[in-house]
């Protein structure tokens, strides 16, 4: 979705947002973990999508109102008995400082300097994050001015910029922007020349490289 500029909490204008299906899936709780991670990271930077998710949550609330199933006889009594036994809740969620929002820092185990990069060739590096196998999340470092390997997709790929920026065709993606590429997209993101580009990329299927990396190596690199 491309929409007019709005200002994110970090003060930059986010132009490229999440799509409806993804926002709804996040609210409904049906996305693979890797997609949940990229949504939570984007929402940490984007007020507009955060407000949209609250609206989708409200749809869930309205649907809940129409459900009903008979409770067990002792249901209320059992629950009341548990109330005082439960420990006090933990404090509110933290707000991270640094390049990575809090949900991403939880997966990396720290900020940008904690990432354990693996070289992919041509100066490009990646770090795979631990998520369920239904989809893959990894961080990419693309050197300033360099191109990502030319690739198409077998599924959906989402790429969220965390630092620096990249160009894909005529579209410019900066911190907080998210690019959504579907199965038919053959694209070549190129990092902006001003600084190295760090992004979080999520795919629900292996990429199809047509360029520098022979496909036999894909399994080895897990990309």
């Amino acid at each position: 979705m491309t929409q007019p500029d709005i200002t994110s909490p970090s003060g930059t204008a986010i132009r490229h947002h999440l799509n409806e299906a993804t926002l709804m899936g996040y609210a409904a709780g049906t996305l693979p973990e890797a997609f949940n991670l990229i949504v939570a990271t984007h929402l940490s930077l984007c007020d507009r999508c955060r407000a949209d998710v609250q609206a989708y949550d409200a749809v869930g609330g309205a649907l809940l109102e129409d459900e009903s199933a008979a409770l067990a006889d002792e249901s209320l009594a059992q629950t009341l008995a548990r109330l005082d036994a439960d420990p006090k809740p933990a404090g509110r969620k933290k707000t991270a400082t640094g390049d990575f929002p809090a949900p991403l820092q939880d997966y990396v185990g720290g900020d940008l300097d904690a990432v354990r990069w693996r070289p992919l060739g041509m100066g490009v590096k990646q770090a795979i994050l631990p998520t369920s196998k239904a989809a893959t999340a990894r961080l990419f470092l693309i050197p300033a001015g360099a191109a990502m390997p030319d690739h198409g997709h077998n599924g959906t790929e989402m790429t969220l910029v965390l630092k620096g920026a990249f160009l894909d065709g005529n579209d410019y993606f900066a911190r907080g922007d998210i690019e959504i590429a579907d199965i038919d997209v053959q694209h070549i993101p190129i990092a902006d020349v001003h600084e190295d580009c760090i992004c979080l990329a999520v795919t629900d299927a292996p990429l199809r490289f047509t360029g520098i990396l022979p496909s036999i190596l894909q399994k080895f690199f897990r990309i």
Binding site: T41, L43, K93, P101, T131, S132
Partner: peptide
């Protein structure tokens, strides 16, 4: 799948 939450707004 785990579902991380966004951070609090600053």
């Amino acid at each position: 799948d785990r579902r991380p939450e966004p951070e609090d707004l600053p």
